[in-house]
Simulated scan of single mutants.
Amino acid sequence: MSKRGVLHGVGVGPGDPELITVKAFRILKESPVIAYPKKRSGSKSYALAITETYVNTMEKEMVGLVFPMTKDKETLERQWNKTVETVWQHLREGRDVAFVTEGDPLLYSTFIHMMRLMRELHPEVEIRSIPGISSVNGAAARLGLPLADGDEQTAIIPATEDRAAMRKALVEHDCVIFIKVAKVLDMMIELLRELDLVHKAAVVTKATSSEEMIWRDVEELEGAELEYLTLMVVRK
């Protein structure tokens, strides 16, 4: 049998194209196939925009993968199986595939499910992960805030409508980073007021990118609609 290609999960950082590792740069240059999350709207994906700084897309086989934004299990399973098989077709022919993702590929990333399902359906495939700088680290750098020092405890929490869970996270940790916070921003501001932590919070959208926005007075954001790639840092 011919040699299989290697599937690389490549973290391309939080937004600033300079925040990419030397190894990620090498893998992007060497891989004949670049797979990336593709938006149905036709707008360019965040990860692809970063990647285009380093690769000539005319010299690569660019594979856009659509990931459905739904909780319907049948739809998800059908689309994910199709997506994995699309990548497998290149791997089976001996071509390495670099799957690019913003941030880190093993931290709340689409690549995690790709890796899990590829191992299940095609266990013979070698899979490697190239760490990347996450939006959490990028936001901390832009805010000038240490995330943890000494014996302090830090949590990374996906923001949800579970008010009790969000309150518990704030109470129990010295620093909390709430990712995907835009959809529950008003509730989070209410919680911050309740716990007298409004002055300890900051919000960052598209950290380190050319479209970055930073708010240090989070009460300004009450009623606002922000980008999906928005996080909140609360350091007590």
Rank of each mutant, 00 (worst) to 15 (best):
V125D: 00
T154A: 15
L185F: 02
V233I: 15
E152P: 05
E219L: 05
K82Q: 13
M114T: 14
L91G: 05
H122F: 06
K236N: 03
E161W: 13
H122S: 00
I157R: 09
R128I: 10
H113K: 14
F111H: 09
E219H: 04
A148W: 01
T205D: 03
A47R: 00
I156R: 05
L117F: 04
G223L: 01
K206W: 11
G94M: 06
A141S: 12
V184D: 05
K3T: 06
G9R: 02
P32D: 03
L48C: 06
P123A: 06
M187W: 09
I156C: 10
I157Y: 04
K38P: 07
Q89Y: 02
L28T: 08
V181A: 14
A98N: 09
D16T: 08
E222L: 13
I177Y: 05
P17L: 12
E172H: 10
S109R: 08
L65K: 07
I179L: 09
K180F: 01
M62A: 12
K60E: 13
G94Q: 02
L145T: 07
S109K: 07
A141V: 07
I112E: 14
T86C: 01
E61V: 15
H113E: 14
D104N: 11
D174M: 01
F25Q: 12
G9Q: 02
S43E: 15
T21M: 11
A165F: 08
L19V: 09
V97F: 07
T230L: 01
W215K: 03
E225F: 02
V181R: 04
Q89S: 14
V6L: 07
R78P: 01
E102K: 08
V97E: 06
I20M: 11
D151G: 06
P17K: 12
T110I: 12
P131S: 00
L192H: 11
E222A: 12
R216W: 01
S134L: 04
E227T: 04
M187R: 06
A35Q: 08
E161I: 14
K60Y: 15
L65Q: 08
A98F: 10
A207N: 01
T160P: 12
V136D: 04
V33S: 05
V10H: 03
K71L: 14
K29G: 02
R92T: 01
G9V: 00
T101A: 10
E211H: 05
L28W: 09
E93Y: 06
N81T: 06
V66Q: 14
Y228P: 11
E220I: 04
R4F: 03
H199E: 15
S209Y: 04
V203S: 09
P37F: 10
E59D: 15
L117I: 15
E194I: 14
M58R: 15
R26E: 11
D174A: 00
G103F: 10
F25T: 11
E225R: 13
K39E: 12
V55T: 11
E212D: 05
L195T: 11
K206Y: 11
K236L: 02
S135P: 09
M118F: 03
I112H: 03
R95Y: 02
M187P: 06
G144C: 00
P32F: 02
A207K: 02
L76P: 07
D217A: 10
A141K: 03
E225Y: 04
T21R: 06
I214L: 04
L170C: 03
Y54C: 04
L145E: 00
L197S: 11
T70F: 12
V55H: 10
L147T: 02
H173T: 01
Y46E: 04
A159N: 13
T57C: 13
G42A: 05
I112S: 12
K168R: 15
R235G: 04
